[in-house]
Structures are given as structure tokens and as C-alpha cells.
Amino acid sequence: MIQRMVVSALLAGFAAGLVAALLHFAFVQPKILLAEQYESGALVHFEGAKTGVGAAHDQTAHDHAAPADAPADASAGTAAESTTAAQPAAHDHPATDEAEASPLKRNALTAAFYGLTYVSYGLLLVAAFAAVEQTGRQVTAAEGLLWGLAGFAVFQLAPAMGLEPELPGTPAADLAARQIWWWGTAASTAMGLAALAYGSGPLRWALGLVLLALPHVIGAPHMDGFGGVAPPELASTFAARTLGVSLVAWLSLGYLATRLWAEAER
């Protein structure tokens, strides 16, 4: 049984990770690179408006056009050159500097870690398949997309409703507290969905809904106030795209994992 589980998870996980990586490079990476320009201070959101109001018509006020005019999908180099409102780097971010030196290495690592992440999801998913089959039920390929939706809800949507996917350069609450909330939310959402899908009797509705709601009633850890340096439009586009990408990747994972799982049984 272990072999059936691991093989299904590995194959489906790497394929879904590849889907995630390709969509990431098309939709998400340009937003990260642009946000890093704001993080490093190469671009400054609303800088022109602020100095324009405060210091009447000094030099910087005339040069403010860049943030709004910078092409949304600009690569690191061109957007930096297009702005004259550049400030000396206010924040240090060594990871960024290193990554800019070698985008190929950076993107290869991203693809590899998508593979690892989705193989991990795949292992958890097939463990759930096996647990369900212990109760005498079957997991069929026809349920694949439902499993994918459930995984998306557990690992992406429910956590994102409390802890928004963050652009680089967004300050946030204590890391350990956020990680604990993240894992607790995933566990509670998974148990809630399991109660709704496999429980019996009217009590399962109550139990399922309580488990789904609990993390959000407790609430995710947050800072007082907001400190993001990137424009809100950029942050919201980023959040929406990360959820879209992971939805497609999770549907692929659910479909492939149930297919392989059912095939391996024969």
C-alpha cells in the first residue's frame, strides 16, 4: 500500500508542481519582481504626490511620474531605468540582490520547490485516500476535482482568508504565531470538510461548520496598522493571481492523484 501511495503522490505531485510553476512564471513572478522594486526603494509608491503636497515644487515633485507609469510586467532592469524618482535603497534585502544576479538559478529553485510543495500536498492527499478506503469506501477518479477543490480550500483559500498572500516587502505579525495559525487552520479546515463529506447524521453539519469557522473566529495574528510599501493594486492583483494559480494546480493534483490511485488498485 505504501508503494501505491508514494508512487501516486510523486507522479501527480511533480506534474501539478510543473503546472503551478509554469502558471507562476506567467502570472505571478512579474508581480514579485515589481514589488521588489518597491521593497528596495527603486520605485516609491505615491512619492511624487507626497512631496508635491509637502514641499511645493521642488525637484522630486517634477520627477514623480515613474511609479504610475512603470509597466506592470516590467522586468527588473527596465523598470528601474524608467524611473527618475529612485531613492537610495532604504531596505536591505540580500536575497533579492543575489537573486537578481542570477534569475536562471532563482527560477530553477522556484520550479524545484513547487515540485517539492506539490509532492508534499500529494502525499497528504493519498494518505487521506487510504484513510477513506479504510472505512470501506472507494476513492474514484470521478471525485478527483472535488478532492482538488478540497485541498485548495484547506491549504490555500482558508489560510489566505486570514493571512493574505504577501508581496515581498510587506511587514507582518510574529512569524511563529502566523505559522501556528496557518497549520491550525489547515488542520481544522481539513477535519471540517471530512466531517461534512464522510460524517453521518445531522451532527456532522454542526461539527463541520464549527471546524471550518473556528480558525476565523479565533482570527489570524495581525500587526496594528499597515506597512506595505507596494501599491494596493499590485498587492491585490498578486493575491488574486496566487489563488488562481494554486486553484488550477490543485485541480490538476486532485485529478491526477485519484486517476493514478484508482489505476494502481487494478
Partner: peptide, 14 residues
Amino acid sequence: HDAAHDVRHSSGFP
């Protein structure tokens, strides 16, 4: 952290 940086941000991991 550095190696997984972009994946972590895009997967909503804290």
C-alpha cells in the same frame, strides 16, 4: 528561505 522565497510568497506560507 532564500531558495524557496518566491514559492513561499506565492503559496501563502507565512
